[in-house]
Nucleic acid binder design. Structure first.
Lengths: 340, 340
DNA sequence: ACTGGCACTCGCTACAGTCGAGTGCCAGCA
DNA sequence: TGCTGGCACTCGACTGTAGCGAGTGCCAGT
């Protein structure tokens, strides 16, 4: 049972009007605001079909129609094209991102920019360590039994951990350790590192072995296995736009989900740079976010993704505009990363 | 015109009941729940005086009384003593903070702990760079014209910046630069650093001077003058507790203020470890936070403060409990920092 | 100085009535 | 067959009224 072109046009019109006005839209208003070329009665018949198919629904018997999650899905998949960005938006992106002094700065600016442009909550994952490779490892002696391990990744990320050595270690040995780990690990991806780190321990000369063992443990445990993924958030205040109508009256579950880094990572941390993922309401696996939609994509220098970014908002959002903005920002960030 | 002891007791009872129930409290309920030893009518007379003096007010003519900001102030200053922590809370603090692997981890755990214990929004400032001293400066060559400058502070903070050199520089020169900056700057406070950095440029041998000049600029501009202060937030979902009664119905201004690092820094970034600052409602200089209260203190190893931490909640909060928790957490964090 | 009593205020809730946007259905028309 | 105008119907939103009750202020009495 197919939907003919007019029914699809009606659905599109409903989505567009509802997104714009935030009010259920009726048949009369619809024919007035769009050139559908038919009467309200005809539209009503179409609406009845759309409702039967689950694309729209009536909040109350005597109210207009509202798109369902399924309706938005159809709209996104087949009825909308990505809006080109306005020149003003392009300029805003460029202005916002030039002059970033380091990775932290880039991420911060990006997330704020995204929140501002989309007027929604923005989430940016720091470049994933698992997908970065080692540029340099530095060992700084803090005391005779403590080292600060600093890892610099090619994506610009810098991570540090304190290493408690089992026994005091002379300065020369630190130099040796530093040379060894750098020789073996620089240029490798952290996700491929475990066997190399293992080998490092086995190959090391006896008097370095205890220190190297500890060091390798720290490397493996805290840098690789652990939750070394980080995210930045901005624009939570945007959740309060649209009164309390969106999110069925309570921001609580949304705010709770936003604070769970693991949750947010799962949400935005998987896409490739070229694809944009849109999760609408119920499609979301996280219960707390059943009333929200997420638009996300990957970013990275070139075509491989080093991290994800996206926005979260009410299901009633401007999908074409949001998708366009998310993509554009991801592309710019990718370019920025490629430069270094 | 003084308030006698009973009137103060009435005010205390009103504050305690209102904080507990979140409902205006009337004279009858008051004598029932507290041993005031007098009749409701007497309490009413006292209430009339308290209202005249601006410590309480009536939301509606026929409603009970609610403390004003001024009433909370009096309560905090003269009517409450800091609640001792429960053993369970002490245990929670210890359990939460042991096992932190680095500074980031400490700050994150702290802010989450604070949010959880107080059931409010928690804010923790990273140890201020201005109040830290330099433990080590590392220069890592990225390319012939780029260095990564990594600064490790005694508080455990690690900051990095990319340095774009005016001309290519050989590896030996990098070694020299590293030695020079470490000789001069290690052990100094960053706030006292500018003249030293300046001297560094002037004393350097001619062929190092261009690189040293750039390096010093980066040091001064991005590490010292710039917004190198950072904060961590947690518990924003707690804002939604108490329905929408707190914060006069809109979380918007609060969420906006929370996103402004500068604002939050001003709010919590000034106290000494031994003093606890309480800002109640209107006392707050930030308009967006006129409906909120802030309890903050400094923390640091020993008696000097390296940063601030605190919580933000509705004016209707459990001040004695919150103050106790904030202090205790600050003390634990200070001890943790002192260990390293 | 405190208390019991009493009249009064006013927000809250329930209920009834009206209005109107929007619908579903149906007969008629191209 | 598909579209249209007309019409009865539904039901939420809003309005006005009435009763309830918590809480007050005041006053006379102890």
């Amino acid at each position: 049972m197919g939907l003919d072109d007019r029914k699809l046009a009606v659905l599109r019109a409903i989505v567009e009007d509802y997104v714009a006005t935030q009010e259920p839209v009726g048949s009369k208003a619809l024919v007035e605001r769009h050139q559908l070329g038919v009467s309200p009665a005809t539209v009503r018949n179409d609406m009845a079909v759309l409702e039967e198919e689950g694309y729209i629904r009536q909040p109350h018997t005597s109210a207009g129609r509202v798109p369902t999650d399924r309706g938005y899905r159809l709209f996104v998949d087949r009825l909308s094209r990505v809006k080109p960005l306005s020149p003003a938006e392009r300029r805003a992106i460029e202005r916002f991102l030039v002059g970033a002094v380091d990775l932290d700065d880039v991420v911060h600016r990006t997330v704020r920019l995204l929140a501002q442009l989309t007027r929604q909550v923005a989430v940016v994952q720091y470049p994933s360590l698992a997908r970065s490779s080692v540029r340099h490892l530095e060992l700084v002696p803090i005391s005779t039994t403590r080292l600060m391990l600093v890892m610099i990744a090619d994506t610009g990320r810098v991570e540090q951990r304190l290493v408690e050595l089992p026994a005091p270690i002379p300065a020369d040995d630190v130099t040796d350790l530093r040379r060894l780990v750098n020789e073996k690990l620089v240029g490798t991806r952290l996700s491929e590192t475990p066997p190399l780190v293992q080998a490092l321990v086995e190959e090391s000369v006896p008097h370095l072995r205890p220190a190297m063992t500890t060091l390798s443990t720290v490397l493996l445990e805290t840098l690789i296995e652990r939750h070394e993924e980080r995210i930045a958030l901005a624009g939570t205040a945007n959740l309060t736009r649209g009164g309390l109508l969106d999110f069925q009256g309570s921001l609580r579950p949304i705010l709770e989900a936003l604070e769970e880094e693991v949750v947010m990572l799962k949400l935005i941390g998987e896409a490739e740079p070229s694809t944009t993922r849109v999760l609408i309401g119920d499609e979301n696996e996280i219960d707390n976010l059943r009333a929200a939609s997420v638009v996300s994509t990957g970013y990275g220098p070139g075509t491989t993704s080093v991290g994800g970014l996206g926005v979260l908002g009410p299901t009633r959002m401007d999908y074409p505009g949001t998708i366009a903005t998310v993509r554009a920002v991801a592309r710019y960030v990718g370019e920025l990363l490629a430069q270094n």
